[in-house]
Design a protein around this nucleic acid. Structure first.
Lengths: 214, 214
DNA sequence: ACAGGCTTGTAACGGTTGTTACAGGAATTG
DNA sequence: CAATTCCTGTAACAACCGTTACAAGCCTGT
């Protein structure tokens, strides 16, 4: 039927062999989270691997003083490599995962994961690809933090945010931005003002509109 | 016989099942590298996974402007997760791997890796563990770069270096340190001088001696 | 309309880091 | 030993960023 939302497993039908899709359907658990919900926090252990069916998950590092830093987003069809970490080595999480928008997850019991690695080539491939892509993102993050100045990081952040939300109007306070970049609200206000003067964006209350030549 | 060096495969006999050790012996290639040699550079592709038998490998990120940043060390018995990345996805490397000391590597052809993941549980575990440990190190690196000031990063760097080399006397120029921390020689000289005044270390030409209360 | 709370704009200041420049030591080479 | 090159120390300055403080604006609920 036209216009009907895809069945939630359709996405994975492209990735996994039928037998695995069937097992997924049978043995994993569907879970819904609201925008802003925290699924995984520092120090927690986790007993299920989440596959993201719809929505976006924000993964960030929080250091001992509570300072935050955005690492990357998990998008539809993807999963979080760090949870593999927690699960397999039974370690506590060193990162926080929270819903950037309302999202739907498929939770796979850890116990099954290991067996699937051997049983289903597509699963093995999926897990490896996920992990390897995350490495790339972590490197990108390190590049930003280690080599770039805040104004450039801010611009990249805004662009990424626009891509993830699919809109050039971002509903964000300066404080939120500061948090995700691991810095101070005043600094962000200053830089944003400069970008506004340069006609790269417009600042409203709790809202930023990105212009073409950002 | 007492004092005789271990056979190079003995290390892996503890990690892998006998059949895998046998295959390793038969199908992989031993390789020696001298301190300072670069095994893997940005943009290269790699067709073999290295297992480190002895020595230490330094893994660093180099950005577009040629600035370097130390990511982590690969030690005996370990391997480099990023090479899995290159290999499996046939991507070019985004990192540089060079010998910190004279080292011996066992090079496993990529073609075998995939099959072994299914065939040998110990190999699967080894690969997963390696990757997951690297995540932890990358997070540590991000913590340093994003949240810590240079003086603290320098201290951590020196301690780590002392641990890796097993000596409290480090043969390093200020320039080298600056490179590995992604900063400037003068800045390092300045901070080292301060540490020397604080009786944390002694500065010689091309050499730094760490004192107890660093 | 008003109060109170959250959000933004701005100034002022200090600390850290990056940069350039130069001088003096140390090591190396011929 | 002399010349050269590399390494270290230091000064001086600028840029960037973090921090505090305060004023003004916006939003919400009453």
């Amino acid at each position: 039927m036209i216009g009907q939302p895809l069945n939630y497993l359709d996405r994975f039908a492209e990735l996994f062999e039928p037998a695995l899709v069937a097992e997924l359907e049978e043995k994993s658990m569907l879970m819904e989270v609201k925008s802003g919900d925290t699924m995984l926090n520092i120090g927690q252990t986790i007993r299920a691997v989440p596959l993201l069916i719809s929505g976006t998950i924000k993964v960030s590092r929080i250091n001992d003083e509570g300072q935050e830093l955005l690492l990357y987003y998990v998008k539809e069809g993807e999963s979080c490599a760090m949870t593999f970490n927690c699960c397999i080595l039974s370690q506590t999480s060193v990162i926080k995962g929270s819903a950037e928008e309302d999202s739907v997850l498929l939770c796979v019991p850890v116990a099954l994961m290991e067996g699937w690695m051997v049983k289903y080539p597509s699963w093995k491939k999926y897990v490896m690809t996920t992990m390897l892509n995350r490495f790339t993102e972590m490197i990108k993050c390190i590049d930003e933090v280690a080599f770039k100045k805040l104004d450039e990081r801010l611009i990249n952040y805004l662009k990424e945010k626009a891509k993830v939300t699919g809109s050039s109007v971002l509903n964000l306070t300066h404080q939120q931005i500061g948090d995700e970049l691991g810095t101070n609200r005043v600094v962000i206000s200053r830089l944003l003002k400069k970008l506004e003067n340069d006609k790269k964006l417009l600042i409203y209350n709790k809202q930023i509109k990105l212009l073409k030549d950002l």
